[in-house]
Structures are given as structure tokens and as C-alpha cells.
Simulated scan of single mutants.
Amino acid sequence: MGEHHDHPTHKHGEHLHRHDGDAFVRTVADACEQRGLRLTPLRLRVLEMIAASGKPVKAYDLLDQLKDERAGAAPPTVYRALDFLLENSFIHKLESINAYVSCHHPEEAHQVPFLICDKCASAVEICDERVATLLSEQAREHGFRPRAQTLEVHGICSACADA
């Protein structure tokens, strides 16, 4: 994985984020320690693989990698690890492509939109509270009580557009 840096802040304080995989794993390990959560070797390994991928990764790709490293790796073991990471907001699931990506702010639960490139499958997390707030307000105005929020915008990233 190439080293990624945060993009500059854009107008109104929103950020487009990319990840430093090692720093991300350290942040999650620290958060687990602070919250008294058990980051088992398998959960840690799944987390490392997601962080190292640099782009969304599917569960069966994780399983294939694990089978090379651990005898007896099976789908339920991978899904249990993914469930733990999702429940604690350390990763996000991109529903539209059924893939997992590391979270830029794993120390806090939050709803964020993603820009997903249909050409290279990159996913960029946009950290802008206004988006989640606007969706929640609109839902309330319609008498709707939201439980979860997923916003995934598909298109072509700037790198693919320039190529």
C-alpha cells in the first residue's frame, strides 16, 4: 500500500481522507485498550488486511488471504471479526459494493458519505457533519425515524478521469 496523506481541508471544513494503515491499526488498538475491548489476533489480522488494502476489500478476499496464513480459516471466523470491527465503528461496510474499508476516525462512531470510483474501486471518506445532519433533519421533517445512514456516491475519481 502506498502511503496516503490527508487531502487539504475544503470549504466549510469538510475533509477528504485517505489512510496511513499502520497509524490506523495503532489507533484502533489504543481505542480497544481504552474501551476494554478484546482485539484478538484474528480481529487484529483482519483489521491489518483491510488497512493494508488501501481500497475496499471483500470478505472472500480476506478469507483467501487468511487461508494462506492460518489452517482452519472459515467464513464464520472472518464474519465474526468483521462484525466486531463494524459494531465498534473501526471499519465501514460499503453496502453498494459489499466491501469493507477502514474508518478515518475509528475512535468515534460517525456516519460519513463515501465517493466510490467505478473504475479503480477506490473509496474516499468525506468527513462533513453537515451531510449527516441534513439527512437527519430531512428525515425528521417527514416524520421518519432513521436507524442507520449510508450514503455512497458512485462515479469516476480524479485519477481515473485524468488517465
Rank of each mutant, 00 (worst) to 15 (best):
Val46Lys: 00
Asp6Val: 08
Leu62Ser: 03
Lys11Trp: 10
Leu135Pro: 05
Gly54Gln: 00
Ala159Phe: 10
Leu37Trp: 09
Leu16His: 09
Val57Trp: 02
Ile50Ala: 01
Gly54Leu: 07
Cys117Val: 04
Phe84Ala: 04
Arg130Ser: 14
Pro146Val: 12
Phe84Glu: 01
Leu62Arg: 01
Glu137Trp: 14
Val124Pro: 00
Leu135Cys: 13
Ala71Pro: 07
Ser96Asn: 15
Asn88Phe: 08
Val124Ile: 14
Ala148Val: 13
Val28Trp: 05
Lys119Arg: 11
Arg147Phe: 12
Asp162His: 12
Asn98Pro: 11
Gln65Tyr: 07
Ile126Cys: 13
Ala148Leu: 14
Val57Cys: 06
Arg45Val: 01
Glu14Ser: 11
Gln138Tyr: 13
His110Phe: 10
Ala132Cys: 09
Asn98Tyr: 14
His17Tyr: 02
Met49Val: 08
Arg38Asp: 09
Leu39Gln: 05
Leu115His: 12
Ala121Cys: 15
Arg38Ala: 04
His15Ile: 10
Thr40Gly: 01
Cys103Pro: 04
Leu37Cys: 05
Glu107Leu: 10
Ile97Glu: 02
Cys120Ile: 03
Asp64Trp: 10
Gly2Trp: 14
Leu86Tyr: 08
Ala81Asn: 00
Glu108Ile: 10
Ala121Gln: 15
Arg18Tyr: 03
Pro8Val: 03
Cys127Arg: 14
Asp162Asn: 14
Ala31Asn: 01
Leu86Met: 07
Leu47Phe: 02
Ala163Arg: 15
Gly155Pro: 00
His5Thr: 07
Phe84Pro: 02
Val46Phe: 00
Gly36Thr: 02
Ser53Trp: 05
Ser136Val: 13
Glu3Asn: 06
Leu39Ala: 00
Arg130Lys: 13
Leu151Asp: 03
Glu125Gly: 09
Ala161Met: 10
